[in-house]
Amino acid sequence: NLLHKNARDEVLRNAGVMMEAALSMRQYTVTQVRDKLVQKEDEFLPQTVPAFAATEMMNQLRKKYPDYAYKEAALNPTNPRDRAEGWEADVVNQFRKETRPEISGTRVTDTGLSLYLARPFQIKDQACLSCHTTPEMAPAAMVTRYGRDNGFGWQLNEVIGAQLVSVPMSLPVQNANRAFYTFMASLGGVFAALFVILNLMLYVLIVRPVRRVSSSADRLSIGRTSSAEKAVPELPESGKDELAVLARSFNRMRRNLEDTIRSMDKR
Rank of each mutant, 00 (worst) to 15 (best):
Q39T: 09
K40M: 01
E41H: 09
L45R: 14
E56H: 07
M57C: 11
M57N: 12
N59I: 08
N59D: 14
R62C: 04
K63E: 13
K64M: 10
Y65S: 15
P66G: 09
P66Y: 09
P66V: 05
A74C: 05
P77S: 10
N79I: 06
R81T: 15
A84V: 04
E85F: 05
G86I: 07
W87D: 15
D90F: 02
V92D: 05
N93G: 14
Q94Y: 11
E98H: 12
E98Q: 14
T99I: 04
E102C: 01
I103A: 12
G105E: 11
V108N: 15
D110R: 12
L113Q: 12
L113F: 02
L115N: 13
Q122G: 06
I123T: 05
K124S: 05
Q126M: 09
Q126S: 14
A127S: 13
C128I: 10
C128D: 10
L129D: 15
H132A: 10
T133A: 06
A140T: 05
A141H: 04
M142C: 03
V143Q: 08
D149S: 07
D149E: 10
N150C: 04
N150T: 09
G153L: 00
G153R: 03
E158K: 09
G161S: 05
A162N: 07
A162E: 06
